[in-house]
Design a protein around this nucleic acid. Sequence first.
DNA 1: CTTTTTTAATTTGTCCTACATTTAAACGAT
DNA 2: ATCGTTTAAATGTAGGACAAATTAAAAAAG
Lengths: 234, 234
Amino acid sequence: MAPAMRNTDLNNDLGPIVQKTMADVVEIRLREYLKEKSFKPGDPLPKEMEMAQSLGVSRNVVREALSRLRMLGMVETKKKRGMVLARPDILSSFERVLDPLIIGDSTLRDIFELRLTLEVGLADLLYLRKTKKDVEELEQIARNQKVTSGRQTFRIKNEIAFHGKIYQMTGNETLQRFQSMLLPVFGYLVSLEKVPIIGKVSHLDLVEILKHGSKEEFRQGMLKHLEHHFAKLK
Amino acid sequence: MAPAMRNTDLNNDLGPIVQKTMADVVEIRLREYLKEKSFKPGDPLPKEMEMAQSLGVSRNVVREALSRLRMLGMVETKKKRGMVLARPDILSSFERVLDPLIIGDSTLRDIFELRLTLEVGLADLLYLRKTKKDVEELEQIARNQKVTSGRQTFRIKNEIAFHGKIYQMTGNETLQRFQSMLLPVFGYLVSLEKVPIIGKVSHLDLVEILKHGSKEEFRQGMLKHLEHHFAKLK
DNA sequence: CTTTTTTAATTTGTCCTACATTTAAACGAT
DNA sequence: ATCGTTTAAATGTAGGACAAATTAAAAAAG
């Protein structure tokens, strides 16, 4: 693990030689500018032409940079009105690049581990915010699975529903959205398995713990539920 | 929590009426195109002019869309060679929008919770991969703090060093980078505290657990270490 | 004088053309 | 066949023009 680590540091320190285009530079400059001047959401930004002239580049280049910030939701534009700083949705940018087919294998494994880590760590939030209604709904999902344990595709869908419901119960919207966009990654990795392996602790067991057990018991239960996944990590 | 949930679903289903620009559309179309044709990293893409003609838009619009994909690291361009699909760095896009000053308060709190969740859930990876050398280095950091517990700024730096080292010990590079870009958020929230509160379990205690204790003990220890943070969550 | 309507002006969105720059590929000389 | 040279293709940048939208101002109506 150490060599990989050193490599990362090296990448940070020495980075590859990349020929920055004007749009790259302008994007950075604009970002710095917004920070320095401590723009807040809603504040009006300079016009495209003003930027172009100040920076000494064509309006074309400025627009390419602005197009990037617009994509991230950092700025919004209206004709005649100009542009204003906006609150970016931090996860939408994430979503765009999270495709199991184009991200590398090592990153894929990293994300898989990240998800397992989250599931085990969720207990505290869960016990802080779970409601009786939530637990009942969760139980319904778990029972639903028990009945229709036949088809493989349905099994996966139900798996998603169950764990998704748990994230929802944390009351943390960002966490919930985060997990929902991690699902394809998770599904992709599970689909690579030849034989579906079932943990020692079932969904219904977890529901039972949620009803009458403690945080620690739930953590242990979730751990056992995901055990076979952890076992695959080397 | 239910109403917020419904609202989210509504936003997904019905979304606000946004006047999509050509660049937006082209970005989406290009992304679909890459998926449908199942491009893999390294594959050459069509030329700008070809795209423009096929889509019936100006080269300018195509370039704005491409500029976005370039920013995300999805495509790389070389003159004469054209463009190739590349492996995007999933976290770099995240980094761009993760500014505590422009993301909203609720998101800020969500991320704070996310981090706490991670720290508690880390134990398994940690015990799977920790080395003697790592533990020693961690101990060094913890001792360093004990000695110089005076200045506030140093305390924070040391706090970062300690927890950062823990993430590094998991051997999960993505996780490590993820936490490092979450640091500003964390630091921002901590800086809002009037009085620095110290947990019941110190860094040195955690090191001791890592040396001779079990995973469960470590999880409990970390929980106690972060207890005052969890206490603030409602 | 106030309210409504019309007009004008400003700013972004799109298209077009031109040229510089880079560099892979074709070509040619030894 | 190898090395250097030329060529051509693709991206990068610049600048101008106009459409579309929408605010702001001016004009008209009451």
